[in-house]
């Protein structure tokens, strides 16, 4: 079965700093993969590359078998890749419902159908009561949930999530976790960047650890968290302890 995402020798530099250096990994359909690593290890840059927000200097990004490296975000969304951000980027002056209707602008279908789908998605995270509330009036945690279901509107094959559990109330975290599990049962793959290792070990079947822009370990949560290179990256002489690259 074709991998949802497969990268080969993915490289991205900003000026003199190489953020992602020859990274290769893959995400199988319907899996939840965690992406961990110390601050500045290249996780967010990897997410930005995987959805076309930035173009790689070299390497390939195959989505469902098709190389989309250098293509626009629109091409990635069309191929089934969506994402959320570390700080939720909801559109604050439009309502929760209207936020969900933005991604389907170029998708064929009537507004009534999309509205029904959006209502169902809002229901899954308990936001249906806020369907007509401007996003600016939602709490930070609710904005994260809204951003999550907005990413599901285009029926993605994979959702890239940047720190979905950071700085949110435990109850919201639980709603998010349940929603991810439910969606995953329906076949959607996830790649989750997080510093909350216990949350990831509960959710993920596989974890990838990056350090200095490279994959240093990959495997089951147990394998990765006990990997000597991972321990060194987090506790030893890795970039985190040297205080490099925020």
């Amino acid at each position: 079965m074709t991998n949802v995402i497969e990268t080969e020798t993915l490289t991205k530099s900003f000026g003199g700093m190489t953020a992602v250096s020859g990274t290769s990994f893959s995400v199988e359909p319907g899996t939840i993969v965690g992406l961990i690593g110390p601050n500045g290890s290249g996780k967010t840059t990897t997410l930005n590359l995987l959805n076309g927000a930035i173009a790689p200097d070299q390497g390939t990004i195959r989505v469902q078998g098709e190389n989309l490296a250098g293509k626009s975000s629109t091409a990635f969304v069309k191929a089934g890749v969506t994402r959320t951000f570390q700080n939720p980027r909801v559109f604050s002056t439009v309502t929760a419902m209207e936020n969900l209707l933005v991604p389907v602008l170029h998708t064929r279908g009537g507004k009534a159908g999309f509205t029904k789908k959006a209502e169902e998605l809002l229901e899954t995270v308990g936001l249906l009561g806020h369907r007509d509330t401007p996003a600016s009036e939602l709490s930070g945690g609710q904005q994260k949930l809204l951003e999550f279901v907005r990413a599901l509107m285009t029926d993605p094959h994979i959702v890239l999530m940047d720190e979905p559990f950071a700085g949110v109330h435990p109850s919201v975290k639980e709603v998010m976790r349940e929603a991810i599990v439910e969606r995953n049962k329906a076949g959607t793959a996830f790649m989750i960047v997080s510093h909350e290792i216990p949350d990831l070990t509960r959710l993920c079947s596989r974890i990838i650890c990056m350090s200095d822009g490279q994959v240093i370990a990959e495997g089951t949560p147990g394998e990765v968290t006990s990997h000597p290179l991972v321990i060194e990256a987090y506790l030893g002489q890795g970039p985190a302890s040297r205080g490099e690259r925020g």
Binding site: T74, V77, R89, F91
Partner: peptide, 27 residues
């Protein structure tokens, strides 16, 4: 319309709208 919501999304955060798949230049 969805077109109008997309316009307002562009006004607020154009890169985020792009990442969601909105063809911002075309809109």
């Amino acid at each position: 319309s969805n077109f109008g919501y997309a316009l307002r999304a562009i006004s607020e955060d154009e890169p985020a709208a792009q990442v969601l798949g909105v063809k911002t230049t075309s809109v």
